[in-house]
Design a protein around this nucleic acid. Structure first.
Length: 485
RNA sequence: GGCGGCAUGGCCAAGUGGUAAGGCAGAGGUCUGCAACACCUUUAUCCCCAGUUCGAAUCUGGGUGCCGCCUCCA
């Protein structure tokens, strides 16, 4: 059973082999910190967290670097708008990001370098490129000479000729070639700047990642990740810079996750249709966000709207309801029927196979649902005192929680989480709790009076408001219908 | 204008050469005063056309539709 990854560079799945036995280095392009992150940013955070968790499960010691871009044009503009200094602004949003991460309960990143703390590395890197004659300075700007890197365009599958044929090219007067990109740009009056051999200025967008990646992980790394939109030009340019600088192959595996859509449109800051991760987690729940984003394969587009959110809530309700039942049944015994044991082992295997196949999370989740059904089947076919049922409950809970760790999912307290889901839906559907409670009392009396017609009418009317009643031994409880279409 | 991706049941979504995972919704049944939960059963031939093959959703060619990148973007 080997891990296979889709490599953007080769456009196919490849067997994963680390550069060094038992060790994996991964670098993921992190956020430009001038605003709260939207859920598109979170797709990468959540996906690569799973990648890291899975690699660790496979026995690798992983170093995961996620950078902060804390100086660029957008940051400068925003800081002027907000009348804050650049560092005040970026520190604020870095802190906000870290708060969001703690809400997600994912594995912490090992290193989170900042661009502004690597200016020496960046300058050294640029000097190295100039020394190799692949970069040139003009009036305080330094540009990378794309023609000097013969495999330029290999990652994105573009050739310079194709790009040339496009009409979106906007040549800069100082560039030798329209596709040369800036490594160092001179500071304008009043802008934050750093000293360099070419005058005060700041780094271009792409060089920081090459420099920080090199500083923390060395010449060659195993995995480099990011959003699909970074393939060109950002990652293409990183390859050019890094491979020219070290004369070595920079990255073994390029991994890119696809976009999130909102309705019919790509969700993006420039379109202004973003949902902030924090807003989503506050309105709904981090667990829902994680489940939703992982329920679709990472290389597919994912539409995040209310309907999809409700679907995720339905799915989580099914899993957590079974977990809650299992908790109430289990008593420490771990002996289940042979069939159930086999099924459990099978689920572990299927999840592993799914994740090993380029992180096929839908396959992994499908087998988790099979496990849920198998457990519910035990509940419905065995007596409540059957020790084999108690054993099944124990194994079931352990299985879901073990597997859930890869995704950083399914670790919530079932009863608390289900109540939280109810609260979310009560709010979403504007359910009047007092009214429901009063109708419940009325119905209970009607049932005591054997006035079943009235009791049924009340139940039906509540159902129209998405309130479902459960008549149990200890009275009637209610919950919100979370299976909405 | 250049380059690339996608098109699977009512909805979401895996599968990428041997006769369609999973979730939601729907139908029938068990349970129930009636329900709900849960369980059991059940619901598709994979955008269109042509081709390769013993055999294709899966490969090739053409068409249609949607989307992305080429500009900051995850």
């Amino acid at each position: 059973m080997t891990l296979r990854l889709y490599n953007t560079r080769s456009k196919q799945k490849e067997v994963f082999k680390s550069l060094r036995e038992g060790v994996v280095s991964m670098y993921v392009c992190g956020p430009t910190v001038y605003d709260l992150l939207h859920i598109g940013n979170f797709r990468g955070v959540i996906f690569f967290n799973m990648v890291r968790n899975w690699l660790e499960y496979l026995g690798y010691s992983v170093t995961y670097v996620l950078n902060f871009t804390d100086i660029d044009d957008k940051i400068i503009v925003r800081s002027q708008e907000k009348q804050m200094s650049v560092s005040e602004l970026t520190e604020y949003y870095i802190k906000a990001f870290q708060e969001d991460l703690s809400l997600l309960s994912i594995t912490p990143h090992d290193v989170t370098p900042k661009c502004t703390e690597h200016m020496d590395d960046i300058v050294t890197f640029i000097q190295g490129l100039i020394a190799k004659n692949v970069a040139y300075e003009v009036d305080g700007s330094v540009f990378f000479d794309v023609l000097s890197f013969k495999s330029y365009g290999q990652l994105s599958g573009k050739s310079l000729d194709d790009l040339e044929a496009g009409h979106r090219v906007d040549p800069h007067p100082n560039k030798r070639d329209p596709f040369d990109f800036v490594l160092w740009k001179p500071a304008k009056e009043g802008e934050p700047c750093w000293e360099s051999p070419w005058g005060d200025g700041r780094p271009g967008w792409h060089i920081e990642c090459s420099a920080m990646c090199h500083a923390h992980l060395g010449d060659k790394i195993d995995i480099h990740g990011g959003g699909i939109d970074l393939i060109f030009p950002h990652h293409e340019n990183e390859i050019a810079q890094s491979e020219c600088f070290t004369d070595k192959s920079f990255v073994s595996y390029w991994m890119h996750h696809n976009f999130i859509r909102f309705g019919d449109e790509k969700m993006s800051k420039s379109l202004g249709n973003v949902i902030k991760g924090r807003d989503y987690m506050t309105t709904y729940h981090p667990e829902i966000l994680k489940y939703l984003l992982l329920s679709v394969h990472y290389r597919s587009e994912l539409n995040v709207d209310t309907k999809q959110t409700y679907h995720a809530i339905s799915a989580l309700t099914r899993i957590y309801t079974a977990l809650r039942d299992a908790h109430s049944i289990m008593d420490g015994s771990t002996t289940a029927s042979a069939d159930f044991q086999v099924m459990i082992n099978d689920v572990y295997d299927k999840v592993a196979n799914g994740l090993n196949d380029d992180f096929n999370t839908p396959v992994a989740f499908a087998s988790i649902f099979e496990c849920v059904r198998a457990f519910n089947h035990e509940v419905s076919t065995r007596k409540s005192k059957d020790t084999l049922l108690k054993g099944a409950a124990t194994l079931f809970v352990k299985c879901i929680q073990d597997l859930g760790r890869y995704f950083s999912l399914f670790q919530e307290s079932p009863s608390t989480f289900l109540k939280r889901l109810d609260q979310i839906m009560i709010k979403e559907l504007n359910i009047d709790v007092d009214y429901v409670e009063s109708m419940l009392l009325e119905r209970s009396q009607a049932r005591l009076d054997k006035n079943f017609q009235k009791a049924d009418d009340i139940r039906d009317s509540l159902l129209l408001k998405h309130v479902i009643l459960h008549d149990g031994r200890h009275g009637t409880i209610w919950e919100v219908n979370k299976h909405l279409d």
